[in-house]
Amino acid sequence: MRCFILLITVAVTCLSAAALQAADDVPVERAQLTLRVTGLFAPDREADLRELMMLIPDVALVSVDYLQAEAVFEYEPNKAFDKAKPDKIPERIDNAIRTNSRGTFGAKPLSGLAKDKLQNVDISVVGLDCKGCALAAYESVAKVDGVERATASFKTGLVTARFDPAKTDRAALEAALVKARVELKKPLETTP
C-alpha cells in the first residue's frame, strides 16, 4: 500500500511539474500605456525615473520622451495591480510612482489638447542652486491649472512652461513662482 501511495505521489508531482512547465511556455500578454510624467523637470531626472521604476514590481519603463514629458509603461494585465480594470491602470501606476518617489514623480493621462494649441514661456529666475530648489520651482508652476509641461534648471536659471492659454498665462505662472519664494530675475534696465 505504501508503494502505491508513493507511486501516486510521484505521478501527481510529475504531472504538476509538467503542467507548470506548460504554463510557463504560454506567451504572457503584456500591455503598454503612454502617460504624462510629472517631476521630469530636467534631463538628469530621466535617470532618476528609470531607477525608481526598478522598485515597482510588474511594471516596466519602456521609453521616455523627455521633451514631451511622456513615458511608455509595460505591464501584464492579469498580474499587475490585482487585475484592475483598464481604466484604473493609469491611477494605479500614478499611485505606485508617487509612493515610491515620495511624491517627486507622478503619472497622468495624456492631454486631449493638441500640442499646437499650447503656448511656451521661459521665465528667468535666480537662486535655484540645487536639484531640490529646481524641483520646488518646477512644482509651483506645474501645479497651475492648464500647464501641460514644465521644466526648471538651476544651471540655466530658467523655468519653462507649455500651457493652455485659455486656462493660464505668464502672469499666473510668475505669481506661482513668487508664492513659492522663487525670485524672478529682473530684466536689465537700459539707459538711453
Rank of each mutant, 00 (worst) to 15 (best):
M1H: 04
M1S: 08
F4A: 06
F4N: 02
L6T: 11
L6M: 10
T9M: 12
T9P: 00
V12N: 13
V12I: 15
C14K: 11
L15I: 14
A17K: 14
A17C: 12
A22I: 02
E29D: 12
E29V: 14
R30D: 07
L35P: 03
R36V: 09
V37D: 02
G39K: 09
F41P: 05
P43I: 14
D44H: 15
D44F: 15
R45F: 09
A47R: 14
A47M: 10
D48N: 09
D48F: 09
L49F: 06
L49P: 02
R50C: 02
E51H: 06
M53N: 02
M54S: 07
M54D: 08
I56T: 01
I56F: 01
P57V: 00
V59W: 04
V59T: 07
V59Q: 04
S63M: 09
S63C: 09
D65R: 14
D65Y: 13
Q68S: 15
Q68P: 04
A69S: 15
A71K: 08
V72T: 15
V72E: 12
E74M: 01
P77G: 09
N78C: 00
K79H: 11
K79F: 08
K79V: 12
K79R: 14
A80D: 09
A80M: 13
A80P: 10
F81A: 06
F81I: 10
K85Y: 15
K88T: 05
P90S: 10
E91K: 15
E91P: 11
R92V: 09
R92T: 07
R92P: 07
D94P: 08
N95L: 14
I97P: 01
T99V: 04
N100H: 12
S101V: 05
R102K: 15
R102A: 14
R102G: 11
F105T: 00
G106A: 07
A107T: 01
K108F: 05
K108W: 06
L110F: 04
L110M: 10
S111C: 03
G112F: 05
A114Y: 08
K115E: 12
D116G: 01
K117Y: 05
L118A: 03
L118K: 00
Q119K: 06
Q119C: 05
V121N: 00
S124H: 07
S124F: 05
V125A: 01
V125T: 00
G127F: 09
L128K: 02
L128C: 05
C130S: 14
K131Q: 08
K131Y: 01
C133T: 11
C133K: 14
A134C: 09
A137V: 07
A137R: 04
Y138A: 01
E139G: 06
E139C: 07
V141L: 00
K143H: 13
D145A: 08
G146S: 05
G146W: 01
T151D: 05
A152G: 04
F154S: 10
L158D: 02
A161H: 01
A161K: 00
A161V: 04
R162M: 04
A166S: 12
A166F: 04
K167W: 03
T168M: 03
R170W: 03
A172S: 10
L173K: 01
L177A: 04
V178A: 11
A180N: 10
R181G: 09
V182T: 12
E183K: 13
E183C: 01
L184S: 06
L184E: 03
K185V: 05
K185T: 05
K186W: 03
T190I: 06
T191I: 04
